[in-house]
Amino acid sequence: MSDFYCEEVLSGNTKVIKVLETENILAYYHTKPAYEEHIVVIPKKHISSLITL
């Protein structure tokens, strides 16, 4: 299964407009927003499932 966030966004293959970046997270404007302000926040470490947290 492909992971868009790791393989595309974090690797830099898909360019995004960053809102905030820290050592642990990246927040950016959604590439295809459903709302006027649509911000995505992702961890910089791959997490396969919320259950694993």
Rank of each mutant, 00 (worst) to 15 (best):
residue 25 I to D: 00
residue 18 K to L: 12
residue 20 L to C: 07
residue 12 G to R: 08
residue 47 I to G: 01
residue 45 K to R: 15
residue 8 E to D: 14
residue 23 E to P: 03
residue 49 S to W: 04
residue 15 K to T: 08
residue 52 T to C: 11
residue 34 A to M: 14
residue 15 K to M: 08
residue 14 T to P: 04
residue 44 K to Q: 04
residue 5 Y to H: 00
residue 4 F to G: 03
residue 27 A to T: 01
residue 40 V to M: 10
residue 24 N to D: 13
residue 23 E to G: 03
residue 30 H to V: 06
residue 29 Y to A: 05
residue 48 S to I: 11
residue 12 G to C: 08
residue 9 V to D: 10
residue 22 T to K: 03
residue 46 H to C: 04
residue 39 I to K: 01
residue 16 V to W: 00
residue 48 S to M: 10
residue 53 L to H: 10
residue 18 K to R: 07
residue 34 A to F: 05
residue 23 E to R: 01
residue 38 H to E: 07
residue 40 V to W: 08
residue 20 L to F: 15
residue 21 E to D: 02
residue 7 E to W: 07
residue 5 Y to I: 11
residue 52 T to Y: 04
residue 42 I to V: 15
residue 51 I to Q: 13
residue 31 T to C: 09
residue 23 E to M: 03
residue 34 A to C: 13
residue 7 E to A: 02
residue 15 K to C: 01
residue 13 N to Q: 13
residue 46 H to I: 10
residue 13 N to F: 03
residue 25 I to G: 00
residue 34 A to E: 12
residue 35 Y to Q: 15
residue 34 A to S: 13
residue 40 V to E: 05
residue 6 C to V: 14
residue 51 I to N: 08
residue 51 I to G: 02
residue 19 V to D: 14
residue 17 I to A: 14
residue 1 M to G: 15
residue 38 H to S: 08
residue 24 N to L: 08
residue 43 P to H: 09
residue 15 K to H: 05
residue 52 T to Q: 07
residue 38 H to L: 06
residue 30 H to S: 15
residue 12 G to S: 07
residue 22 T to D: 05
residue 32 K to N: 11
residue 33 P to R: 15
residue 19 V to T: 05
residue 1 M to Q: 05
residue 28 Y to G: 01
residue 19 V to L: 10
residue 15 K to Q: 11
residue 8 E to H: 03
residue 50 L to N: 13
residue 20 L to W: 02
residue 1 M to E: 15
residue 38 H to A: 09
residue 16 V to Y: 00
residue 46 H to S: 07
residue 14 T to V: 14
residue 35 Y to T: 14
residue 11 S to D: 08
residue 22 T to I: 06
residue 34 A to V: 13
residue 19 V to W: 02
residue 34 A to R: 12
residue 6 C to M: 11
residue 41 V to L: 09
residue 18 K to G: 00
residue 3 D to I: 11
residue 32 K to V: 12
residue 2 S to G: 02
residue 38 H to K: 05
residue 45 K to D: 07
